[in-house]
Design a binder for these strands. Structure first.
Length: 102
DNA sequence: GTATTGACTTTCC
DNA sequence: AGGAAAGCCAATA
């Protein structure tokens, strides 16, 4: 197994992601701020892409600032509907209602 | 050492 | 509302 990112960074991010309550979603920037890397939202996305490879985490509850779901990931929409997350469109969630309290 | 890229964010149009 | 450009950090080449 090739370590793509530093273990510490992954641990910080995944620790926050697993704390996201059901029926809510968090933005990459929000998570980035919680781990102390507000400007590293892109790193969060990269780590999340490998999160399933490192362990089972609710990465489907993480979306972009605009509620945009992960590109090339059709399953995420279904997973969110299972969590009773309000969807605006096939590829967007209603952040006004389901945004994780920070 | 610099250049490129990425599940991003913000600002401007 | 949706698209483009700039900005940011970390990893890879």
């Amino acid at each position: 197994m090739k370590r793509i990112l530093d273990e510490a960074l992954i641990y910080e991010i995944l620790s926050v992601v697993e704390e996201i309550p059901e029926g809510k979603v968090a933005t990459y920037g929000q998570i980035a701020r919680l781990i102390g890397r507000e400007k590293n939202a892109r790193l969060v996305g990269k780590v999340l892409s490998m999160s399933e490879f490192y362990g089972s985490y609710p990465c489907h509850r993480v979306v972009s600032h605009n509620g945009r779901l992960a590109p090339g990931w059709a399953e995420q929409k279904y997973l969110l509907e299972e969590e009773e997350v309000p969807m605006k469109d096939d590829a967007h969630v209603d952040l006004a209602l389901c945004r994780w309290d920070c």
